[in-house]
């Protein structure tokens, strides 16, 4: 289990436990942090958008092309930041223990 420090949309802070080897999106969704993950991890809904804290961005790796396309589509509706990621594209690992992130606003 990796500990993930989450800033939720109302500004409240929580720490959740995320199983290693699984997409981060699933832990965030199952813990009711506001992440929906509607499409199940195919980069087609944009409901698992998070902002990864600056110090952690190297460890969460690079964005894939599919992820970039979804983020570009989101740009019209929500703010993108350098740490913008789709949590479905981040696999939880030991190296991410202590990860800090913020749940991005929903598309409205």
């Amino acid at each position: 289990m990796a500990q993930i420090h989450v800033i939720q949309r109302d500004g409240s802070k929580r720490t959740i436990e995320a199983p290693e080897g699984e997409p981060l999106m699933e832990a965030l969704r199952d813990e009711n942090t506001g992440v929906e993950g509607t499409c199940g991890g195919t980069c087609s809904c944009g409901t698992c958008h998070v902002y990864v804290a600056g110090t952690w961005q190297d460890k969460t790796g690079a964005r894939s092309d599919e992820e970039d396309m979804m983020l570009e589509a989101l740009e019209e509706y929500v703010e993108l930041r350098p740490g913008s990621r789709l949590a479905c594209r981040i696999e939880v690992s030991n190296a991410l223990d202590g990860l800090e992130l913020e749940i991005a606003p929903p598309v409205e």
Partner: peptide
């Protein structure tokens, strides 16, 4: 609100 990006591709 957003068409899945693959639809444009």
């Amino acid at each position: 609100k957003i068409m899945p990006p693959v639809c444009k591709k």
